[in-house]
Design a protein around this nucleic acid. Sequence first.
DNA 1: GTAATTATCTTAGCCACTAAGATACTTAAT
DNA 2: ATTAAGTATCTTAGTGGCTAAGATAATTAC
Lengths: 151, 151
Amino acid sequence: MDKDLLKQLRKLSQQYAYTSIQMHEAVARKAGFSGTDHKYLGFFLQKGAMTAGELSSLTGLTTGAVTGLIDRFEKKKLVKRQFAAADRRKVIIEPNTKNIMALLEPLYKEYRNKSGKLMASFSVEELKTIEAYFVKAIEIMTETTDKLNNK
Amino acid sequence: MDKDLLKQLRKLSQQYAYTSIQMHEAVARKAGFSGTDHKYLGFFLQKGAMTAGELSSLTGLTTGAVTGLIDRFEKKKLVKRQFAAADRRKVIIEPNTKNIMALLEPLYKEYRNKSGKLMASFSVEELKTIEAYFVKAIEIMTETTDKLNNK
DNA sequence: GTAATTATCTTAGCCACTAAGATACTTAAT
DNA sequence: ATTAAGTATCTTAGTGGCTAAGATAATTAC
């Protein structure tokens, strides 16, 4: 067992997380977001339309905070409120993917190019290894997050 | 070239980042941190002691915000202020790694166990592939962050 | 048809952030 | 040495997003 390798990898995965947080924040600032809005905007790109309540439980924010969040996004034309036909209490938040992309893409462009090149430098086998790691690691983090939040 | 694999991997790496942010936040809440302090606490574990000014440029916070940040950490005995001998204007912030660890470790314990097992399930070759990916990806993200922040 | 529930919004109060300027120390110039 | 300029941190006033609690509006259960 290569303990040093494991230790090094653990450290790297932590550093990877921190570094991505920092990049994420730098992008947010550049995009003109105050505070943490960029983080929540990502949920829309990932999951698509959702109700205010879903966003609240997804983000852990109170419904009041979500109201404000959507207000800010709506003002910037990044999302649109729509009442659900089936249940008119519900507010469906429809992301304007085009506008969101137009805002974020230029800021991520260079990163995308570089990381594309990086990926291309690996063989298919290697990429599958990395993929497998990501899939499992995401699972573990999601489990951990759920446990921390729900009790 | 396996384009689907590349696309999938790109998506996964993004999801990995978001998921780690969410876990990070869940830990923060559980540890009793208001807002984003946990994120900045990580800098100390990574980089060790630094001056207030370094922390400011590292985090992108104003010096005023850093003063408040250190006040909160100091009150919780997670860091200690010390005037630099060479230049008494400078305030060196010494992390109390022991206390920080004692606070965070229990919350990360299960995650550490699980991700340890995950890593152990890969061969040494595979781990080296993952390591190589991490190292390069971190480089790229750091470059991107620097460019976004410094102009 | 009334009560209970659910989903979102509103309000008051709090706290961390920025911007600007104050304080304290250091370095450079004469 | 003295003065000026520069640097590092802290302080203060004002802003804005967050929570908690309650209001509003729609739905479901009895």
